[in-house]
Design a binder for these strands. Structure first.
Lengths: 369, 369
DNA sequence: ATAAATTTGTGCGTATGTATC
DNA sequence: GGATACATACGCACAAATTTA
């Protein structure tokens, strides 16, 4: 069985598109001449011309007799009217987990109203997958990109691709947090305020011994923790060191659960009377821990989560939580992108949502001592 | 002053466009062959090819190896040449709800491994939105389509779009159920078997009075109910008419809940000792009803759901349920599509998954009378 | 300012492969 | 199998626009 390779000119097209997608050649850069490409790839000039001709028709390049071949500016409609309709790319850390599907839903429905299409990819929080998906998406005619940054301590190895987006005048917005080295608008919840309001709610109910569990390998968790700590400080509530548990994504199924079990093992005068959980997903797991310790929520322990996930009302004790815009955030992201597309260059501002407290059954006044 | 004539291939393009504009050649008419045109206009076949190539890129013509060159249907904007890489469209009824995100996730990850892209749309179970999304997707160069049929009693008003897919040799597969008037492979769970196993499990635990709640405006629910009924019949368990509750999507938040509350209002000798719920989403809601009646699961009432959703373990009483392949189904859908793409025309078969019972805490032996 | 070199555009020739009928 | 039609690939020559020496 002979391996069927694609035709040479197709191979060359893919090669050249990858040059553009990876920002090796930016808008209005001059490509090597036809003869040079032919020599380099060991093909005839005619074959090169076929590839270049296709790419020109598809809007990737423009050519000028006597001058050369150049990378087209996809943004200005001169090259070619966008095939039809708008295609928006979206890259989220997780597709199926937690509140992310709800955000995607907002994006999709807002986009459909505009006659647009949604190209969806998941990074699974891995830089490598982010790179693969960026590369794949950039081979298309993208109208814009919505990206939820992949958390990483190692900086931003995919910066090239984002520069390529800018070079091609493709606008992009970020969700939940931003890459610090990129200057694009960001849609986020005021997590510091959320953390503060969570602690404030418990404090107003009379709780003194409040523990906090925060995932601190992303900014969301860090901000929620900051707001939490600020409230305790302002109210001059003492925070025992063992009442603040920080964990990473990898530890999320073990560390906070074990820590709470340990805390609840102490006597009634020692253990916390309320806890703040990084999000509802953790809070739901914590419910099991509390039950496992023979205690009940909220009588023995008040709990508060974040994000108002579906999970928060699936439980027996409906969770008090802080709301997250989810669907609206997705819709707003599309709206923002479209504004950026229309009058590009206009200055852009972040959209920050103020999280409201949703009081349900998992918080109650502290027992009077 | 010498008159400057346009290049030959431009002249030919104008000539051919005039043929189309004057309706000498109509949509899908076959043009003379390249050699014939070359001879007639006294130019080389290469020059003809250049003109035809341009016209094809501009959407006037389409060409088919071995058959000829034809006038394109300008109405469907499908004429532009493909960008690189594989783009798969997916249309699901709901993007954010329940188990659908997990299926999408399987599709996305399998596709990324192939260097492909996922174009996602939601129909929200509305034929109109399905049509919009199909139309939008068809403007792109699609490699294939994964569709979860939108339920409707009114047949399939979007049939022409699917026929258009077939005309363009774009393979598609269906999830969960099929449009009866379309002949495409389908990936589904054996819901009849699932319904049977659910009832069987309860029967083996000694339950005699088993109620069933099924959403019967889709085939999934109908099959689950059939399996449920078959088991009761085979075991000659009497089913009181009021123990079988059928409801529609619109009624899902009210009818089954009220029905269960009513059933549980009867005395211990009258009320059911076990219930089968259409899916885990309903089961979770039912848990609240049971608690509201002052009863406990599984001591007073055994419950079983379907699909092994995330919700099933978020509850205090972890739900016994029947598994659903979810991620694997998504991956398999991509694999099937790629097989169809490679040797299209090969006969294709449905993929049917056998649902396994997952026993957790919501089912227990019936109390001995 | 002119000429030479470079780069794309036009036009044609040949050969071979592959799909269709 | 043979004929036909389009697809791929390479070759050459010259024209036109632009840049460089």
């Amino acid at each position: 069985m002979k391996e069927q390779l694609p035709p040479k000119y197709i191979q060359l097209k893919e090669e050249i598109v990858s040059w553009i997608a990876s920002a090796q050649f930016k808008t209005h850069d001059k490509l090597p001449s036809e003869n040079e490409i032919a020599a380099r790839f060991g093909m005839s000039r005619q074959t090169v011309r076929q590839a270049l001709g296709d790419l020109e028709a598809e809007g990737w390049l423009y050519r000028s007799q006597g001058k050369g071949t150049f990378v087209a500016d996809k943004a200005d409609g001169s090259s070619l009217k966008a095939p039809q309709g708008l295609t928006i790319g979206m890259m989220t850390t997780h597709i199926s987990d937690y509140i992310f599907p709800t955000i995607v839903r907002g994006v999709e429905s807002a986009l459909r109203l505009q006659g647009g299409r949604l190209l969806l990819a998941s990074t699974d929080n891995e830089k490598e997958k982010e790179r693969e998906s960026l590369e794949s998406m950039l081979q298309q005619q993208l109208g814009g990109l919505i990206i939820e940054p992949t958390k990483s301590a190692e900086g931003n190895p995919n910066l090239d691709y984002f520069l390529s987006l800018e070079a091609r005048n493709i606008p992009y917005v970020m969700l939940n947090e931003r890459y610090s080295d990129l200057d694009a608008p960001c849609l986020k919840v005021d997590d510091e305020l959320g953390g503060f309001r969570a602690a404030e709610h418990l404090a107003q109910l009379g709780h003194k011994r409040i523990a906090g569990f925060f995932k601190t390998d992303d900014f969301q968790g860090v901000y929620r923790m900051r707001g939490f700590l600020r409230c305790l400080r302002e109210r001059q509530l003492n925070l025992r060191p063992e009442y603040l548990i920080r964990y990473t994504t990898e530890e999320k199924r073990t560390k906070p659960v074990e820590a709470l079990a340990s805390l609840l093992g102490h006597g009634p005068a020692e253990r916390p009377t309320a806890i703040v959980c990084y999000n509802d997903e953790l809070a739901v797991r914590m419910l099991d821990v509390v039950r496992g310790s023979g205690l009940t929520v909220p009588a023995d322990l008040s709990m508060i989560g974040f994000d108002d996930a579906t999970l928060a009302t699936a439980t027996e004790v409906k969770l008090t939580t802080l709301e997250h815009p989810k669907t609206k955030m997705g819709e707003d992201a599309v709206g923002l992108l479209i504004r950026l597309l229309e009058h590009k260059g206009g200055l852009v501002q972040d959209i920050v949502y103020e999280p409201k407290l949703i009081v349900r059954d998992s918080t109650a006044p502290a027992a009077v001592l």
